[in-house]
């Protein structure tokens, strides 16, 4: 690495460390109660969402490699990454609110769906999971898409006679580094997911919602404390992944 590149890396890292860690320490105060619960909740939902996004992400990447109609359809998975997260939240809320709007007397199925959505999805754990999976899909898709450009694993495994779910499983296992990267980056990303959750599923409270509430209700200090703790958790996950998994 030459001196110029080192200077750029050093300057960028220093500015970020100063702005995101060192200077905010001036305001540091302990976060209000419920912080650990929000972190654990984010970790659990983020973990589940990252796992659930792997197979669809891989299947979409395969379709994108083949091109054609399904390759075009697969690009839809990028939508959550290219529109503002608040828009994704609004759109999810609108879609899931539709059964309630369409429910009328006698439409038992629609009213049943509307009841299920209000009891189990919007501002409920299932809603958090749905929102996180939606936001994790573009990460998994893009990482597998990159990996499949390097390796023509699909052509190899298909020629060995594999197809369907078994083919996907073999590809997932064979592309281990990409699968781990997709899983880890989606997981880390879930800690910062605010826009979509704020609108679609702000309860149970995940880390980003907790920080937002802490800032609104208790000021900068407790929000800084919680934010730095989240940074520590995310960096620890990234370090472990980089050191032992990737």
């Amino acid at each position: 690495m030459d001196l110029f590149s080192k200077a750029i890396v050093g300057a960028t890292a220093s500015v970020l460390a100063l702005l995101l860690v060192v200077l905010p320490l001036v305001y540091l105060s302990p976060p209000p109660p419920g912080f650990v619960e929000s972190i654990v909740l984010t970790a659990v939902f983020g973990l589940a969402a990252s796992l659930l996004s792997l197979l669809p992400g891989l299947a979409a990447a395969l379709a994108a490699q083949r091109g054609g109609f399904w390759g075009g359809i697969a690009q839809i998975l990028y939508i959550p990454a290219v529109v503002p997260p608040t828009s994704v939240g609004v759109l999810l809320l609108a879609s899931f609110s539709l059964p309630r709007a369409a429910c009328f007397e006698g439409a038992h199925f629609l009213c049943g769906v509307a009841e299920f959505v209000s009891e189990h999805v919007i501002n409920k754990p299932l809603g958090v999971l749905i929102a996180m999976v939606v936001m994790a899909l573009p990460t998994a898709f893009s990482i597998f898409d990159g990996a499949l450009k390097e390796e023509r694993a699909e052509a190899f495994f298909r020629s060995l006679g594999f197809s369907g779910p078994r083919l996907l499983l073999l590809l997932l296992l064979s592309l281990r580094p990409a699968a781990v990267a997709a899983f880890v980056f989606s997981w880390i990303r879930s800690f910062g997911e605010l826009g979509v959750l704020l609108i679609f599923a702000s309860y149970p409270m995940t880390a980003s919602i907790y920080i937002y509430q802490a800032w609104l209700n208790h000021g900068v200090g407790p929000a800084v404390g919680a934010s730095l703790a989240v940074i520590a958790v995310a960096v620890a996950i990234a370090f472990v992944a980089r050191r032992w998994l990737l």
């Binding site: 694993a153 073999l170 281990r176």
Partner: peptide, 19 residues
């Protein structure tokens, strides 16, 4: 489809064994 042709296709970049 490729999986039913009975033609084994070895790639230039070898594929990592899945297990």
């Amino acid at each position: 489809p490729p999986e039913k042709r009975g033609l084994a296709y070895v790639q230039s970049t070898p594929v990592d064994p899945p297990t």
